[in-house]
C-alpha cells in the first residue's frame, strides 16, 4: 500500500501541499467568493420578499378601493331608488288630484244634466198636460159640443194621467 510504504518519504509533502491548496480553497474561495454568492442569494430573497409584500399591499389597497366603490355604488343606488320612489309618489299624487278634480267636474256636469233633464221632464209633463187639456177641450167640444173650460179639462187630464 503506497499510502503506508511511502509515508516516511512523502508525509511532509502531502501535509504541506494539502494545507497550501486547502488553505487557498478556504481563503480565496470560501472566505472570498462564497460570501458574495450568498450575498447575491440573500439580496434576491429580500427583493422577492419585498416585491411580494408590495404586491400584497397593492392588492389590499385595491380591495379597499373596491369596497369603498361598492359602498358608494350602493349608496348611489339607494339614492336613485329614493328619487324614483319620490317621483312616483309625486306623480301618483298629482294623478289623483287631477282625477279628483275631473271627478268633481264630471259630477257637477252630471248633476246639472240631471237637473236639466228633470226640469225638461217637468216642463214636458206640463206641456203634455196643457196639450192634453187642450186636446180634451177640443175632443169634448167636437164630440159633445159642450164647452169645457180650461180648468176642468186640466183636472180631468191630471186625474186620467195619475190613474194611467
Amino acid at each position: 500500500m503506497p499510502q503506508i510504504a511511502q509515508l516516511a518519504e512523502f508525509y511532509s509533502s502531502q501535509i504541506f501541499w494539502s494545507l497550501v491548496f486547502f488553505g487557498l480553497t478556504f481563503f480565496v474561495i470560501g472566505r472570498g467568493m462564497v460570501p458574495k454568492v450568498m450575498g447575491t442569494v440573500e439580496l434576491r430573497d429580500n427583493q422577492i420578499a419585498a416585491d411580494l409584500a408590495a404586491a400584497q399591499a397593492a392588492r389590499d389597497a385595491a380591495d379597499e378601493q373596491e369596497e369603498a366603490w361598492r359602498k358608494r355604488e350602493n349608496e348611489n343606488r339607494a339614492a336613485a331608488q329614493a328619487t324614483i320612489a319620490e317621483a312616483k309618489a309625486k306623480a301618483a299624487a298629482k294623478t289623483e288630484a287631477t282625477l279628483a278634480k275631473a271627478q268633481t267636474k264630471i259630477d257637477a256636469k252630471l248633476e246639472a244634466a240631471e237637473a236639466a233633464i228633470s226640469e225638461a221632464r217637468t216642463s214636458a209633463m206640463a206641456e203634455v198636460e196643457t196639450v192634453a187639456a187642450e186636446a180634451t177641450q177640443d175632443i169634448v167640444s167636437r164630440l159633445a159640443g159642450a164647452k169645457v173650460d180650461k180648468r176642468t179639462a186640466r183636472s180631468a187630464v191630471k186625474k186620467a194621467l195619475a190613474n194611467g
Binding site: 518519504e9 512523502f10 511532509s12 509533502s13 502531502q14 504541506f16 501541499w17 491548496f21
Partner: peptide
C-alpha cells in the same frame, strides 16, 4: 521535504 507530487 515538500516535493511537488502528482498528489499535490
Amino acid at each position: 521535504n515538500i516535493a511537488f507530487t502528482n498528489s499535490a
